[in-house]
Design a protein around this nucleic acid. Structure first.
Lengths: 254, 254
DNA sequence: ACAAAAGTGTTCCCCCTACACCCATGT
DNA sequence: ACATGGGTGTAGGGGGAACACTTTTGT
């Protein structure tokens, strides 16, 4: 049944999708003190791949990205960003060509798959706890893997992930990207650990607190009742309205 | 003769180039107190267009960009950067379809031109005085036009230029982009006027000088003999070696 | 009582800002 | 002499870095 779906998908691809252009999304989340990327384990191979796909002939590239992230995560409202086009020669769907499906395809479908592809890289920032990862029809599993311990991947997906991280790191100075990765309510310490993770460096506790609060984009909520043997910290939430006002004048954090 | 070249180019395009992908380069220069972009005036139309083209099936996208900029400017060593993929539906080579050449083309060639195109945006920074602008076969003229007074352009080239400027402006904080736009030797005042142009705001003379010199990427040369009724300023040149050392630790200017 | 982590305060110092002041040069 | 622009000096303030102190809570 699933086999039939794959065959149909590949057989019709050359009629539905733009030729030679694919897209890959680096979906990033944060849990257990690590930035993680959502990867798909391909059937028939011991290789992982980024969620991705093709762009329908009558579809905006941004819209195609939105659709793919929604399918893999279940999320509707998304923060995502295009960051690079990977256009080296020799990129193609080689892993599909070798698959058991390729043989059954028509000549047109096979030619379409065999052509060179350029791919548009997007990154998306999501809250891991809100996501229910969904493998696509070509993959057998789907998992959040820490970006500093990537498994073997197809093609240049390793490079795509690393390039994405670099862009996120640079955006940290201007946009409160961290807030797209945390749950609705969080403590300053949690936010600091996230920042330390992204930038890969320790920060001073007291200074971090003052600095992030002075941006005036967080709202203090009730105190957190914790089971920890220490003072209960405040919870905060991100204030999108205040943020929208600030952003026009530029936010400088680091 | 030129007519024949155009026909040949368009007729063979579908065999040589990647389908559905084009590239456009925002070539920026600086002269007479204005940031200027190199635009081509199309034959048969009263419209301007960015230098651009297609990507050969066996050619890296970066290489195709390099080739195009070299053809239009004569420059070999270049600072250029990919910044965005423009992928809205409805983008195509509409201006070519209406041209007098389109009628003579084979069905294959016409279909290739009629398809939807996504385009990769690059920007390049050049020294205007070193450039001898060269129109391509589809254009009758080629000129440096100030980016704040753009003429009517084809498609979304207006948006592409403005997006490019935004990226350059943001890079100004991290890379000495200004130095790719000035002649080999320049005064601090000239550099300041350039920065003021890009950022569109006045800066303090004394502070600009200290700040830019403290980056320690400029080398002071001999004094300039000027015809001006004032003290002769020093000339400086950009020190690429020092810069390469600095950049790893990050350069913060603004 | 004590440990652990949160919240807040303090001091030092650097750097940015804003001007002011001299210097060199051509008219 | 004087205007013009170049180079440098300086006083003040804001903010970051480092560290200290107090507060709350569970064991």
């Amino acid at each position: 049944m699933i086999e039939k779906k794959i065959s149909e998908y590949l057989e019709n691809a050359h009629e539905i999708f733009l030729p030679g252009v694919s897209l890959d999304v680096v979906i990033l989340g944060y849990s257990e003190n690590a930035i993680r990327v959502l990867l798909l384990k391909l059937k028939e191979y011991n290789l992982w791949a980024l969620p991705g796909g093709f762009i329908a002939k009558n579809e905006d590239v941004d819209a195609a990205t939105h659709k793919i992230v929604k399918e893999r995560t279940g999320l509707e409202k998304l923060y995502f960003n295009q960051f690079h086009l990977f256009g080296k020669t020799g990129r193609n769907a080689s892993f599909l060509q070798e698959s058991s499906h390729a043989a059954k395809l028509s000549a047109d479908a096979r030619n379409w798959l065999n052509q060179r592809f350029v791919t548009v890289g997007y990154f998306a920032l999501v809250r891991i706890d809100q996501v229910v990862p969904q493998p696509d029809i070509l993959s057998e599993a789907c998992d959040w893997l820490p970006v500093d311990q990537l498994p073997a991947t197809i093609l240049d997906h390793h490079e795509i992930v690393n390039t994405a991280i670099g862009h996120v790191r640079r955006q940290l100075n201007y946009f409160p990207v961290g807030l797209n990765l945390l749950p609705e309510r969080f403590t300053i310490s949690e936010l600091q650990r996230l920042y330390e993770c992204i930038l890969n460096q320790k920060m001073d506790r007291g200074n971090f607190q003052r600095k992030i609060l002075k941006l005036d984009i967080l709202v203090r909520l009730e105190k957190l009742k914790t089971g920890g043997a220490h003072k209960a910290p405040y919870l905060y939430r991100f204030d999108r309205d205040k943020y929208q006002h600030k952003i026009q004048h530029g936010i400088g954090f680091i």
